[in-house]
């Protein structure tokens, strides 16, 4: 467990900014407690400083996770957001998309969102923008990247993909072995 280096922080923050934009500051300047990012075995954890200090007494090989896991660094140094970060992404997301009940299961099985399943979408969402996917009753289901801007989606046919799948809560079941 160690703090992130300059490069690592940059990778993490750019990725996060793709979804939550300027709300990123809320993750760092919190009114309640000081939170920090910590790297432990390739994974980035977002954890209160108080908890982090206590977790320091757990030996490195024995520490499995602390606080919330945001994602992991691949061997090539790229940062990949995990579904476990969804709580914070959903809270601060700038662009959101709601999918209809009949589109929930296909998305939870790891498929992209097609236009037929689109329920609502934030106005003026640009192309290739990170969006958080919600069900119609406002339960966050995952996140992805838009294929088209909001304006362009109007012209698409119903089977066209509008959001590329990045992560969904179904991964808790599907990828339990590799996720943690």
């Amino acid at each position: 467990m160690r703090p992130l280096t300059e490069d690592e922080s940059k990778a993490v923050f750019t990725k996060l900014a793709n979804y939550i934009g300027k709300n990123l500051v809320h993750l760092i300047d919190r009114p309640d407690e000081t939170y920090c990012f910590r790297l432990h075995r390739d994974r980035v954890y977002y954890v209160p400083e108080r908890a982090m200090r206590l977790a320091a007494s757990v030996a490195r090989p024995n520490l499995v996770s602390l606080g919330t896991c945001f994602g992991k660094f691949s061997k090539s140094g790229k940062f990949k957001l995990h579904i476990t970060a969804l709580d914070y992404l959903a809270q601060y997301a700038k662009y959101k998309i709601w999918i209809k009940p009949n589109g929930e299961m296909p998305f939870l099985y790891g498929n992209h969102v097609v236009k037929a399943h689109l329920g609502r979408i934030t106005e003026d969402t640009p192309e290739h923008q990170g969006v958080v996917v919600f069900s119609m009753n406002d339960t966050p289901l995952g996140f992805g990247v838009t294929a088209r801007s909001t304006v362009d989606t109007r012209k698409l046919d119903p089977t066209a993909i509008i959001v590329f799948h990045q992560a969904d809560v179904g991964e808790y079941l599907r990828d339990e072995e590799t996720l943690f």
């Binding site: 996770s65 602390l66 808790y172």
Partner: peptide, 16 residues
């Protein structure tokens, strides 16, 4: 830790 994350428990430290 999958369950801890799924249920949104942010105050948990998992150790082995």
């Amino acid at each position: 830790s999958a369950n801890v994350h799924r249920l949104g428990c942010k105050n948990v430290i998992v150790c082995n």
